[in-house]
Structures are given as structure tokens and as C-alpha cells.
């Protein structure tokens, strides 16, 4: 990894350079004061790197993605996506990309999107909702902008820096502290045992009694990756399938043929989500996928907070 001090106009020049080969997107604050990732035409002096409502996940794992179209008895995947560069991704969202990369390691459609996506990270400016876990390794990125310094993380990043060599001043050591200043409480020790001991319903059902089951928390989460598939006939008469975001708060999420529901209450669904975020499923068991961005806390209409669940686990007794 290389690090350089950059000249003042590095960012606008980088954007220009990227626009030659990529569709460039970045965070833009709209008239409604909401920040979203959207196509960037030009570099604005007032460009604000605040957390977008939905992370870069929406480009890697789109809310509604065509999986195939039938053509003469075969199942044709969609044409490959365009090259895209996302500028201004905060480190929490980069760590989330790392997690998704591993979840979808074997998924060719995801990997095709991923290899066509260039990530330009940026030191984040934490909001009052953030609670990042401590980090000692860097997240994935092609370039990372740390105020007046830039780091490259991939050969693609190296190449870009070469092209922008005249905007670089001098090589520097990379001594970035990957732990965000808005550090949250560490995960309690023995989480798995605490979890097993805390199967008691009362806490989860109390939260479930407030929960609207609207799914906003999962919808905005940069690591939530539940999905469903939908089949339909398109206007041309072909059968098509889309992958769409699903949500573990939806009542039919764990419903099986025959009508048995494995998560029959909103409390059970909230517990399931916390389990996914804090303890992980399958091969990820034991790994928290919560990156501490705080989006779910901010999005909940009834102020349900994942930190509340964490506190509950921390304070609970271990047998």
C-alpha cells in the first residue's frame, strides 16, 4: 500500500479522471436534506461526505436485480453491469462491503458487480448515531482519502495514483487509525453463552411489543443481505426472475409449507435480527456483522436500538 500527500485540487482531478472510465457516484445532499449516493456530474465545493441513507450496498446487491430471462428453453443472465466508481465511502460502509464480499463469495452475479466497482473511501465524520467497533486492519478500498493524504489499496488504485502523479506531493507512511472516533461499546465477552442464556422471552417480547415490523432497520443496514426471488412474465412473454431484498421482520419470512412459522412474533423476529447482526449465521458464526453505522437506530420510527439488545446481553447473567 502506498500513501501520498495530495495537492488541494486532488479530489476534483480524481473525479475527472474517473469519469473517463466509470460511471461515478457519490453522496449528495438533496433539497429535502437527505444524503443519498447518486451520479456525480461535477465536483462541488460543498460536497459533503455524510453517511448516505443507503450504503454502497445498493450497487453491489441492488434492491431489485434481474437474475435471468428465459430464451428458447435456457436461462440467460443479464448483461454485465457497467464500470462504476463510488467516491466518498466511509470506512464503516467499506467494512460492510468486506462482509458482503465474503457472504456472496460464490455468487457469480455479485462478483461480477464487485469486480466492476471501484471504491474510493474517505475518513468519516461520525454522527451521533454511530458506534463503530474497534478495528485494527484496513477495510477494502481502491483509494482512501484521509484529509490531505491518499492511500492506494489495489493495483487499480495504484494505477489511478500514477495517472494523477502531478497532484501528489510526497510519499508518506500509512499510519491511519482504522478505529473510528465514534467508538461504540465492545461486544461483551462470551456472547454465544450469553445469547443462549438469554433466550428468555420477556426482553425480546417487550421490544417486539413496540416494534412496528416495518423492516426499516434492515432496509437501511449496510450488511443485511436477506433476499427473496420473484418470478414473472415480462411484456415480451419471457419468464424472468428478480432477486429482491427481503426482510426478517416480514411475517412470512420463516413460514414453511404447511403453515408453521418459525418466528411467530415480532419479538422473535427482532431477536433473529440481533442474532444475525451480533453473532452471525452459518460460516460467519462468532463474527459480528454490525459495522456500527447507526442507520438502524436513526431509521426506527419507535426508537428501537440494537445497543439496547447489546446492553441487555452484557448485563444478563452467564450460567
Amino acid at each position: 500500500m502506498d500513501g501520498f500527500v495530495v495537492k488541494a485540487d486532488f479530489l476534483p482531478r480524481l473525479l475527472q479522471q474517473l469519469q473517463e472510465n466509470y460511471q461515478v457516484v457519490g453522496p449528495v445532499r438533496g433539497e429535502d436534506d437527505v444524503c443519498r449516493l447518486q451520479p456525480l456530474d461535477e465536483w462541488s465545493e460543498h460536497q459533503e461526505f455524510s453517511l448516505p441513507r443507503i450504503s454502497v450496498k445498493k450497487y453491489l446487491f441492488p434492491p431489485n436485480e434481474l437474475l435471468y430471462t428465459t430464451k428458447n428453453g435456457t436461462f440467460e443472465p443479464p448483461p454485465p453491469p457497467e464500470q462504476m466508481a463510488v467516491v466518498g465511502v466511509p470506512s464503516c460502509d467499506l467494512y460492510a462491503v468486506d462482509f458482503l464480499d465474503r457472504v456472496f463469495a460464490d455468487d457469480p452475479l455479485y462478483q461480477r458487480r464487485r469486480s466492476n466497482l471501484l471504491l474510493v473511501g474517505i475518513t468519516c465524520h461520525p454522527s451521533e448515531d454511530c458506534f463503530c467497533p474497534p478495528r485494527d486492519t484496513p477495510p477494502p478500498f481502491d483509494l482512501f482519502l484521509d484529509e490531505e493524504r491518499v492511500f492506494s489499496g489495489t493495483p487499480r488504485g495504484d494505477e489511478l495514483l500514477q495517472q494523477l502523479g502531478d497532484r501528489l506531493i510526497g510519499e508518506v507512511e500509512i499510519d491511519h487509525d482504522w478505529t473510528c472516533e465514534a467508538q461504540g461499546p465492545p461486544l461483551p465477552e462470551n456472547l454465544e453463552r450469553r445469547w443462549a442464556a438469554n433466550e428468555t422471552k420477556s426482553f425480546w417480547e417487550e421490544i417486539g411489543g413496540r416494534c412496528l415490523g416495518c423492516g426499516a432497520c434492515s432496509a437501511v443496514c449496510p450488511t443485511c443481505h436477506c433476499f427473496d426471488m420473484q418470478d414473472r412474465i415480462d411484456a415480451a412473454g419471457n419468464a424472468v426472475r428478480h432477486r429482491i431484498w427481503d426482510n426478517c421482520f416480514f411475517p412470512n419470512f420463516a413460514l414453511v409449507a404447511g403453515g408453521h412459522d418459525f418466528h411467530p412474533t415480532r419479538g422473535a423476529r427482532f431477536r433473529f435480527r440481533c442474532e444475525h447482526k451480533l453473532l452471525g449465521f452459518g460460516v460467519f458464526r462468532g463474527e459480528s456483522s454490525c459495522v456500527g453505522c447507526g442507520r438502524c437506530r436513526a431509521a426506527c420510527p419507535v426508537q428501537i436500538d440494537i445497543l439496547e439488545a447489546l446492553d441487555h446481553l452484557r448485563e444478563g447473567a452467564i450460567p
Binding site: F227, G280, F281
Partner: peptide, 25 residues
């Protein structure tokens, strides 16, 4: 076991039970 196995690859989370992906594990 029978669950609502959608993706078959442990990604979609529908069949998870006790942290275990039924479809994959």
C-alpha cells in the same frame, strides 16, 4: 430438516435456525 430454503447457498437467511444455515450446513 425442512425449512424455507430459498437460495440453497446460505445467503438469503430464510432457513437459518439457531444460527445454522439449514440449506448449507
Amino acid at each position: 430438516l425442512e425449512r424455507r430454503m430459498k437460495c440453497g447457498t446460505g445467503q438469503c437467511c430464510h432457513c437459518v435456525c439457531a444460527g445454522v444455515t439449514i440449506c448449507r450446513d
